[in-house]
Amino acid sequence: MVFVNDIRELLKGIGSLADCADRVSEEDDLFEKGLDSFGSVQLMLALEEKYNIEFPDHLLNRRSFSTIRIIRETVSALTVSAAA
């Protein structure tokens, strides 16, 4: 299972989001909240490590990391396919 609070914990490790990770809604655009390109790479690597997944090439884009909801849905799908 992929929990929103677990994603928030990872967001706290991204410098530009550390201060607001607890306050952003699931629909807030994380890039508008300060996430930058390198931050999104850090986030991708943190998600891959925590959930033992690998983002395929077609998901390596800004949209995949743009909101907590999209991150949760994307990671959930990847963990299901990894377990299958």
Partner: peptide, 14 residues
């Protein structure tokens, strides 16, 4: 690297 692929995709898409 792989992380770079994401940076590259972002750069192109923008």
């Amino acid at each position: 690297g792989r992380a770079g692929r994401m940076l590259a995709n972002n750069q192109r898409n923008q």
